[in-house]
Design a protein around this nucleic acid. Structure first.
Lengths: 137, 137
DNA sequence: TTTAAATGCTACTTGTTTATAGTATTTAAC
DNA sequence: GTTAAATACTATAAACAAGTAGCATTTAAA
């Protein structure tokens, strides 16, 4: 699997926001709290709004807040929105069609690990993250 | 984890060569058999030689052959040589220091999956791949 | 109604990775 | 020795991802 830096930023944003699900966060505030370049963060926030994870409130006193219940938002959905599912499903040798009929030499070796990754991304919601936090950040 | 296209190419090369461990492969031949751009493949072969996985034989009738026993070469070593171990160990939020003392919000959630990935890469050798092949390619 | 504080949009810049071009070097066959 | 078939090296190009700049728009407060 290949998680882009942008997806990692998206995880930072949403997992941070999940700490206080109902709060309204401004881009500036988020920029201070998580470490993402401000302009890039703004773009990404707009993007996450367009994907329906959060919604934006414009104008003074505006910001971003969740648009969906955080226990309905899985990590897989987030990766899908940013990188696309191919980044997850792609064969470890990078072959286009590594279907069962002509699987690549490493298909069997890697399959279990890949499924474990997919399962974790599918089963984990933003509220799970919130619950799992023991330490800091 | 973040596997570069180049690492995937390296996997293609070495897993393919592992099918006939003692054979000598020319770049041209490999280019035809696996799907990697020829010039890039050549560079990568030289790189893999420098890392000691294979050795090059120059001149006419030259090519590449394994320099080490294929049951001693793990996938992790290959990724390490190309992308570096950071690409594997990196925190899922991309934070520089996600050590135990101040682990990121997703640390606990992701840790098991990450360890599974590392274990597979560590435990799998090129000869395991050869053995595991059931289908085609 | 003006101002300030927020998001929205689009074009551009920078950095990194992937890919190519061209030439030099090595060595076996003839 | 000359040639042909291979690898080695280095510089450059192309493609992609990440980051920035600047102005437009929205809206609440003063």
């Amino acid at each position: 699997m290949n998680l882009s830096k942008t997806s990692k930023y998206a995880f930072r944003i949403l997992s941070h926001m999940a700490k206080d699900e109902k709060a309204l966060y401004s881009a500036q505030q988020l920029h201070k709290e998580i470490d993402v370049p401000e302009k890039y963060l703004r773009r990404l926030l707009t993007d996450l709004s367009k994907h329906g994870f959060i919604k934006s409130i414009q104008g003074r006193q505006g910001g971003f807040t969740f648009n969906r219940d955080i226990n309905q938002i899985t990590l897989l959905e987030i990766v899908d929105a940013i990188d696309g599912l191919d980044s997850i499903n792609e064969c470890i040798l990078g072959y286009e069609s590594c279907a069962f009929s002509h699987s690549c030499p490493m298909h069997n070796i890697w399959e279990e690990t890949k499924q474990k990754t997919i399962k974790t991304l599918t089963d984990t919601t933003l509220s799970d993250i919130h619950k799992s936090i023991v330490g800091v950040n």
